[in-house]
Amino acid sequence: MIHNPLLLKEFRQRMRTVRAPIVVTGYFVGMALITFFLLYENVQGQLSLFLPARSEQVFVTLSLLQTIVAAFLTPAFAAGSISGERERRTLAVLLTTPLPPGGILLGKVLSSSALLTLLLVVTLPLYSLVFLFGGAVPQEVIAVFAFQLFTVVLIAAISVMWSTISLRSGWSTVLSYATVTWMVFVTGALGYGLHMIAQRFPMEYFVSEWGDVLLNLNPLWILACIEDPGLGRPLGWLWFVGVYVGFCLLLTIPSVWRLRPQAFRFVPGALRAEEKDYQ
């Protein structure tokens, strides 16, 4: 990780384009406008009466919104990382260098999540405005920031793996967004739906159990639980981390196989006939 030439090169390339400052500025301006609008709504134009509970709602809304935006922006930067190299015909040369496949994947994951991390960092001053009105404590902000950072790196990792496994950027983009949609919307809708059913039929234990299982796979739910620990199960985030890290590790196997099929030469059929199509 310390010596990763790919990471350095990607940083240099990504930050040199006009796109990087435009994205950062646009994102900051957008989030600032939303924050000021929410804060204005909170104080209703008068500054003599502060309602910390409503201020906390501003913090929750902001962090949920930021997580959704970051989750959907990450594949845009990561889903074409390896398949793009293949399409630009730079992958073959890269694969003849002694860079290990793990180093290539790690370099791509960290470089594609770097800009998103920068987006999260530039919005930290906006969170500090919420402190002015009470309702959120610094530890809470740190926990939310850490979880958002983890979610970004996780989605970047899954997108890079899809990008390595798929032959085309189009497919890897579809698979990455399908994964994010599952994480953000499908688990939320199904989990919440099952909870609703469990409330109407309290005897249906399994429905409630599955509702929890699904909701704990939703980053927005975990975030809400971090901000309000009474909302879900204690340590529900561990389930989230475990499942998605496991999924990521599972995708790492075919990804490494794609990059270096020789590493799997002891597995029958691993050195497949179609390998010439990959590079």
């Binding site: 030439p5 350095l8 090169k9 240099r12 390339q13 730079t90 073959a92």
Partner: peptide
Amino acid sequence: FGVYDDITAEEYLQFYADC
């Protein structure tokens, strides 16, 4: 073969040297 965008010829060689 293809080449990377937005890096200079010297940086290009240094990247591979670093690899």
